[in-house]
C-alpha cells in the first residue's frame, strides 16, 4: 500500500477517539495484514507510541502481522465445537493444505487459523472460510469446502 493511501485512511478517522483500531481494521482489509512500515506511519500520524500500536496489532485475532493468504480459513476449537470433533476437522485441513494452524501455504493461497468460539455453537463444529460460515463440519466435508474456495479464487483470477 502506498503511504498516501494509508494517509487517506488515517485522515478519514483523524480526531476520533479510538481511531487507532479503525485505521488498523481498514489497513488489514486493504493489505490482508499489517506491514511494519505502515504501523510506523500510523504511530507517527496518530501520535500513538509505536509500542502501543504494536500492542494493539498483536492483541486482536482480526489483525495479522504476517501476510495472509488469499483465502482465510478459521476452524473453531471452542468448547462446543471441540466436543463435537473440531480437532479432527482441523487435522484434516492441516493434512490437505500441508500447513499447521497459524500458517500460510507457500503459494499464498490459504491461511489456516483456529479460534475459540465464533458464537455459533449450535452449528458446531464451525469453520469460517472467507467470512462464510459452514456448520456441522466433518473431516469428509473439508475437501469439498477447499475445492469451492479454490474455484472461486480461480474464477476471480479469470475475471480480472
Amino acid at each position: 500500500m502506498e503511504s498516501e493511501e494509508l494517509q487517506g485512511i488515517i485522515d478519514h478517522y483523524a480526531g476520533e477517539k479510538g481511531a487507532l483500531i479503525s485505521v488498523l481494521q481498514d489497513l488489514q482489509g486493504v493489505c490482508n495484514y499489517l506491514p511494519e512500515p505502515a504501523l510506523r506511519q500510523v504511530s507517527d500520524a496518530l501520535h500513538v507510541p509505536l509500542s502501543q500500536v504494536y500492542s494493539v496489532a498483536s492483541f486482536y485475532n482480526a489483525f495479522s502481522l504476517k501476510p495472509r493468504g488469499r483465502h482465510h480459513i478459521c476452524v473453531c476449537l471452542g468448547t462446543a465445537c471441540h466436543v463435537r470433533g473440531a480437532p479432527r476437522v482441523l487435522q484434516e485441513m492441516e493434512r490437505q493444505l500441508g500447513i499447521r494452524a497459524g500458517d500460510t501455504t507457500e503459494d499464498m493461497n490459504f491461511t489456516l487459523e483456529s479460534v475459540n468460539c465464533v458464537g455459533a455453537c449450535a452449528l458446531g463444529p464451525v469453520v469460517v472460510a472467507d467470512g462464510g460460515y459452514s456448520g456441522q463440519m466433518t473431516a469428509r466435508k473439508v475437501s469439498p469446502l477447499l475445492k469451492t474456495l479454490g474455484t472461486s479464487h480461480e474464477e476471480n483470477q479469470n475475471d480480472s
Binding site: E36, P49, L50, S51, S55
Partner: peptide, 30 residues
C-alpha cells in the same frame, strides 16, 4: 509510559502468549 514518558515497551500478544516486549521484538529505537 507514565513516569518516564517514553513508552518503549508494551504488552504484546494475548492469552498464554502474552509477554512484555519492544515493538517487533527488535532493539528499541526510543
Amino acid at each position: 509510559r507514565d513516569v518516564i514518558g517514553v513508552s518503549a515497551i508494551s504488552f504484546v500478544n494475548r492469552g498464554w502468549k502474552r509477554e512484555v516486549k519492544t515493538p517487533f521484538d527488535a532493539p528499541s529505537e526510543v
